[in-house]
């Protein structure tokens, strides 16, 4: 089933960066993710390129296939069309930006095949 939209995507939500700084979700920049991952002991930032966007099994859901990192690991996630992803150098983007803006007041660009999203991996194998 698609991942529901969590409350922290609502405009005005307070996000704590890894260095303790607080920012509103709509003010986050690519550098905030990069710098937070740099000082994280557990998480490493990686790039995930959107390879396909298909209709999901539920209404208002989409299946997004990503190619992750240098090894191009394939990851498929089913989310609601309004679910925002953070695109490097661009910011929040969703498959249906109008709906994201309507529901969460978060301005979004349209997520497209070829967009490179922020993703995370664990720093080391356990």
């Amino acid at each position: 089933s698609p991942v529901a939209l969590p409350p922290f995507f609502m405009r005005g939500s307070i996000i704590q960066l890894a260095d303790g700084e607080l920012k509103r979700v709509e003010d986050l920049k690519t550098e905030d993710f990069i710098q937070s991952a740099e000082i994280s002991s557990e998480l490493k930032i990686d790039s995930s390129t959107v390879e396909r966007i298909d209709c999901g099994q539920s209404p208002n859901a989409v299946l997004i296939q990503f190619s992750v990192g240098e090894l191009k690991a394939q990851v498929c996630v089913e989310v609601l069309v309004e679910y925002p992803f953070f695109v490097f150098g661009q910011g929040w983007s969703s498959c249906c930006p109008d709906r994201t803006t309507q529901l969460f007041e978060l301005s979004c660009a349209k997520l497209c095949v070829g967009d490179v999203c922020v993703s995370l991996t664990l720093r080391s194998l356990r």
């Binding site: 991942v3 998480l43 990192g69 922020v118 664990l122």
Partner: peptide, 19 residues
């Protein structure tokens, strides 16, 4: 006011890649 950690904004944890 709730405060959310930055990493909660990233929707999935990609598979760990071995070196």
């Amino acid at each position: 006011v709730p405060v959310f950690p930055w990493h909660s904004l990233v929707p999935f944890l990609a598979p760990t890649q071995s070196d």
